[in-house]
Deep mutational scan, measured.
Amino acid sequence: TTIHVGDLTLKYDNPKKAYEIAKKLAKKYNLTVTIKNGKITVT
């Protein structure tokens, strides 16, 4: 599972963990989490 945050690309083997991290990042920086085709993007 890949999380895209701006220019950063973070890879995680565990999709659930990746989603949790994405949610935390989104909350911290007041951003939105988008999931599309298995890719998690924080914008």
Score class of each variant (00 low, 15 high):
Thr1Leu: 12
Thr1Ser: 11
Thr1Arg: 08
Thr1Trp: 14
Thr1His: 09
Thr2Phe: 06
Thr2Ser: 09
Ile3His: 03
Ile3Gln: 01
Ile3Pro: 01
His4Cys: 14
His4Ala: 10
His4Gly: 05
Val5Ala: 02
Val5His: 05
Val5Gln: 02
Val5Arg: 02
Gly6Trp: 08
Gly6Asn: 04
Gly6Ser: 04
Gly6Lys: 02
Gly6Ile: 08
Asp7Trp: 11
Asp7Pro: 07
Asp7Tyr: 09
Leu8Gln: 03
Thr9Arg: 11
Thr9Ser: 11
Leu10Thr: 03
Leu10Tyr: 05
Leu10Cys: 07
Leu10Asn: 03
Lys11Leu: 14
Lys11His: 15
Lys11Cys: 15
Lys11Glu: 14
Lys11Gly: 08
Lys11Tyr: 15
Lys11Thr: 15
Tyr12Cys: 14
Tyr12Arg: 00
Tyr12Thr: 08
Tyr12Val: 12
Tyr12Phe: 15
Tyr12Met: 05
Tyr12Ile: 10
Asp13Trp: 09
Asp13Ile: 05
Asp13Glu: 08
Asn14Tyr: 06
Asn14Met: 04
Asn14Leu: 04
Asn14Lys: 04
Asn14Ala: 04
Pro15Ile: 13
Pro15Arg: 06
Pro15Phe: 15
Pro15Gln: 11
Pro15Gly: 07
Pro15Cys: 11
Lys16Ile: 12
Lys17Ile: 15
Lys17Tyr: 13
Lys17Asn: 06
Lys17Ser: 07
Lys17Gln: 14
Lys17Thr: 13
Ala18Tyr: 02
Ala18Asp: 01
Ala18Arg: 01
Ala18Glu: 01
Tyr19Phe: 13
Glu20Gln: 12
Glu20Leu: 10
Glu20Ala: 12
Glu20Val: 07
Glu20Lys: 10
Glu20Cys: 05
Ile21Ser: 05
Ile21Glu: 08
Ile21Lys: 04
Ala22Cys: 06
Ala22Gly: 02
Ala22Ser: 02
Lys23Gly: 07
Lys23Ser: 11
Lys23Ala: 11
Lys24Gly: 07
Lys24Tyr: 15
Lys24Gln: 11
Lys24His: 12
Leu25Ser: 00
Leu25His: 00
Leu25Ile: 15
Leu25Cys: 02
Leu25Tyr: 02
Leu25Gly: 00
Leu25Pro: 00
Ala26Ser: 05
Ala26Val: 03
Ala26Gln: 04
Ala26Asp: 00
Lys27Gly: 06
Lys27Glu: 13
Lys27Met: 09
Lys27Leu: 11
Lys28Asp: 08
Lys28Trp: 11
Lys28Gly: 02
Tyr29Met: 04
Asn30Phe: 07
Asn30Tyr: 05
Leu31Trp: 05
Leu31Val: 04
Leu31Asn: 01
Leu31Met: 11
Thr32Ile: 14
Thr32Lys: 10
Thr32Ser: 10
Thr32Glu: 09
Thr32Pro: 02
Val33Lys: 00
Val33Leu: 12
Val33Ser: 00
Val33Asp: 00
Thr34Pro: 00
Thr34Tyr: 08
Thr34Trp: 04
Ile35Tyr: 07
Ile35Leu: 09
Ile35Gly: 02
Ile35His: 05
Lys36Leu: 13
Lys36Asn: 13
Lys36Ile: 14
Asn37Gly: 12
Asn37Trp: 08
Asn37Asp: 14
Asn37Ser: 09
Gly38Pro: 01
Gly38Asp: 08
Gly38Thr: 06
Gly38Glu: 06
Lys39Pro: 01
Lys39Glu: 15
Lys39Tyr: 14
Lys39Arg: 13
Ile40Gln: 01
Ile40Tyr: 04
Ile40Trp: 02
Ile40Ala: 01
Thr41Val: 12
Thr41Ser: 10
Thr41Phe: 15
Thr41Cys: 07
Val42Ala: 04
Val42Thr: 01
Thr43Leu: 12
Thr43Cys: 07
Thr43Gln: 12
Thr43Ala: 13
Thr43Ile: 11
